[in-house]
């Protein structure tokens, strides 16, 4: 399995405050703290976590919309974080994005065909006739009828707009697509169609997904591998099946327990989390989850748990993993 995207020690800190001419107290927020992962060709890594855990910032750093404070992104073996200017612009054709809000990410003044052709024009791919054929092929691929090519985005439905956004992301044949909450704004019925489309497209083109979501039900459907984030750091990473069957981190277990049951008969006692997410500007000492953790012990207050493997491809950052497995 060849690695197409590798994040090494990605960190993003924001400085708050400073006040009047920098005289006030400054606080540093670690929105993303030393996050590393790899994605193989044609694979899907899902990053899950609640609002504000830094998952969107990871996507933005990979796309170079936000500059990382530390760490690097390697795209097909090349350090994407070091590229500048024209070199960066040209390499962007290898990593594209599908947005959360399909209405907001399309220029309201451009027709559907113009929107899909834009990356081809910008990256100077194909000749004009070839571009026209490629746009038709992309419309077919994402299930949009060719009759819609002349339409403006406002004359398309939400699902059609998202298909258009996917067609645009596919246009330059990228190696990786970052999908940030790509189905969160869609109706449940359309959500399933779009997820199926994303899977079909992956099978046909071998594109890899970094799929960012807060919704484990969606993630379960599309993920090969899952990384669970809490307060800017990955706390558990495992193959999708294993994560759902044998979650090791207490936070992961709480997340999985919070998925609504499909039938009242399957309802079980919820291990709901108590308390609030601590402020990223004032992280607790030791383990960042300990304040809300049912298993917290003395060591959690003093030492930050390192990521360690508990099974092939399954890593967790928890001091009390064995306790969980015995209990589970």
């Amino acid at each position: 399995m060849s690695v197409v995207l590798e994040a090494v020690g990605l960190t993003k800190t924001f400085t708050l405050g400073g006040g009047f001419f920098g005289l006030g107290a400054k606080r540093t927020i670690r929105a993303v703290d030393d996050v590393s992962f790899t994605i193989g060709k044609g694979r899907t890594l899902c990053v899950v976590g609640e609002s504000g855990c830094g998952k969107t910032t990871i996507g933005r750093m990979i796309l170079r919309l936000t500059a990382p404070s530390a760490g690097s992104v390697r795209l097909e073996g090349e350090d994407f974080t070091q590229l500048r200017g024209e070199e960066l612009r040209t390499r962007r054709q290898r990593v594209q994005m599908v947005f959360q809000d399909p209405a907001a990410c399309l220029n309201a003044r451009m027709t559907a065909a113009e929107i899909v052709a834009e990356p081809l024009v910008n990256f100077e791919l194909l000749d004009p006739a070839g571009r026209a054929r490629r746009v038709e092929q992309l419309f077919d691929q994402v299930g949009l009828s060719r009759g819609m090519m002349g339409r403006l985005p406002r004359n398309l439905s939400g699902g059609q707009r998202q298909r258009l956004g996917i067609a645009r992301a596919l246009a330059s044949s990228p190696a990786v697509i970052v999908a940030d909450e790509a189905v969160a704004a869609l109706d449940v019925s359309i959500r399933a169609q779009i997820l199926n489309l994303l899977r079909d497209v992956q099978r046909q083109t071998g594109v890899a997904y970094l799929f960012i979501s807060h919704d484990l039900a969606v993630v379960r459907y599309i993920a090969d591998e899952i990384a669970v984030m809490y307060l800017g750091a990955i706390v558990e990473r495992a193959p999708a099946r294993e994560l759902f069957e044998a979650p090791a981190h207490p936070y992961t277990r709480a997340l999985i327990a919070s998925i609504p049951a499909t039938h009242p008969r399957f309802r079980k006692k919820r291990a709901a989390l108590t308390g609030e997410v601590p402020s990223a500007a004032a992280l607790p000492s030791g383990c960042r989850f300990r304040a809300r953790c049912p298993l917290a012990s003395d060591i959690c207050a003093t030492q930050s748990p390192p990521m360690r493997a508990i099974a092939p491809g399954h890593e967790v950052a928890c001091h009390n993993t064995t306790t969980i497995n015995q209990g589970g």
Partner: peptide, 12 residues
């Protein structure tokens, strides 16, 4: 988002 999308799509 549509301006960021333009950047991602390689817009000069």
């Amino acid at each position: 988002a549509f301006v960021e999308a333009a950047t991602i799509c390689g817009g000069r």
